[in-house]
Simulated scan of single mutants.
Amino acid sequence: MMEDSGQPHAVLRAAVPRPVRTAVVVNPVKVADLDEHKRLICEGLAIAGWPEPLWLQTTPEDPGLGQARAAVRAGAEVVFVSGGDGTVRAAITGLAGTGVAMAVLPSGTGNLLAANLGLEGHVAAAVQVVLDGGRRLIDVGEVDETGDCFAVMAGMGFDAQMLAGTSERAKKRIGWFAYLFGAARHLRDRPMRVRIRLDGNRVLDRRARTVLIGNVGRLQGGVRLLADAEPDDGQFNVAVVTARSLGQWVVLGLGVLYRWRRVPRMELYTASEVEIRSNRAQPRQLDGDLIAPAEVLRVRLRPKALVLCVPRPERARDLAEGADRVKEKA
């Protein structure tokens, strides 16, 4: 479909900005006004002469995987994905390796992939990004036991406990701040004994609170935990967090916020294959979505497996300048 330019962080231009077949995978629970959502997408495409998209709604039983695969079978060349992190992750699993481009329409509380890659939250702007033809090939991670994919982060331990301790009601009321309350409940939980294997040969034995496998570096609220993580560099950034006391968590947090060269109680590594094995079943998460607890989390990197619609550099500059002008007038 497209060739990689060979340059890091390359934004590729679609060869021909012609009308293409599209589909929309939408989580109706995460969209406040479904009819308006559909109208904006269909009108934006129609103005450019593109046909009306295939409309596929997620269900509690299938949060997006089956719908993404159905879109590919129907011949879609671009799939809009509208929902929270769970919807986006399910669609990534269905689209990775197909060559079909994914366009993220953020609708949930988190949408970490959109936040990390500067994707537009407004529907009309996101449609324009697709029409402009900017594309980026990014890596995805894959869980060995299930084949589930992720594009942001996988984790075992405290991070998953935090997610489990945060209610949907709280997230709707106060947004990402709700995660802070979920985190507070587990700050002093006992650490887990883990053996971490990197690329099949390097072995680390640790008493850790959490182990994070990052494809990108930014967390909720814009906090950049993994400063060197890029979604197309062919490797994961692995963070092993060993903080136990409240004081240690505070110092670690300061180190992350102020981007210290060395953050206390956090070791950093890189690898393309990672296995985390604990002495007991642990909570686990993929892109902020909880999966079944287990003693092992084993993931491998699939390089440049996902085609993502992103703003072209000149378009991103235009949008930023326009936003600045609006702020000046206000």
Rank of each mutant, 00 (worst) to 15 (best):
P264K: 14
Q161P: 00
A71G: 05
Q57Y: 09
A74V: 06
L246W: 05
V129T: 15
A281W: 11
S272I: 04
G118M: 04
T146C: 09
N215H: 09
A126M: 10
L297H: 01
V256R: 04
M162T: 15
M162G: 09
H9V: 02
G99H: 12
L117N: 07
A151F: 01
V24L: 12
C42H: 12
M2D: 07
T210G: 08
K172Y: 07
V11M: 06
L219A: 13
V152A: 11
V241C: 11
E230K: 06
G147H: 07
F150N: 01
P53E: 12
G182C: 02
G165D: 15
P8C: 00
C149M: 11
T87H: 02
L105F: 00
R13L: 10
D4K: 02
D287W: 00
R39Y: 09
I138A: 02
V256W: 04
A239Q: 03
L112Q: 07
R206H: 11
A71W: 06
A154R: 02
R312S: 02
R195M: 08
A96S: 15
A103N: 07
A68R: 08
G322L: 01
D324C: 08
A46H: 09
L40G: 01
P53G: 14
N237P: 00
A90N: 11
L112R: 03
P8R: 14
M266Y: 01
W249Q: 01
A96W: 03
V79G: 08
P313W: 03
A10E: 08
M2F: 08
G182Q: 03
V11R: 01
G255E: 05
P51N: 00
N116C: 06
E43S: 14
V251M: 14
T22Y: 00
R169Q: 11
K304C: 04
W260H: 11
K171P: 04
I196C: 06
A184V: 08
G288R: 06
T146P: 10
K172G: 13
M162C: 15
A154N: 05
S82C: 15
G49H: 08
T146Q: 10
P106V: 05
V203I: 14
M1A: 14
V29W: 03
E275D: 13
E314Y: 06
L225M: 15
V240K: 01
V20G: 09
F181V: 01
G133A: 04
G49F: 12
E142P: 03
R315Q: 14
S167F: 04
Q285N: 09
A103M: 06
M192H: 15
F181W: 04
A164E: 14
V104R: 03
R193C: 01
E295Y: 00
V127G: 04
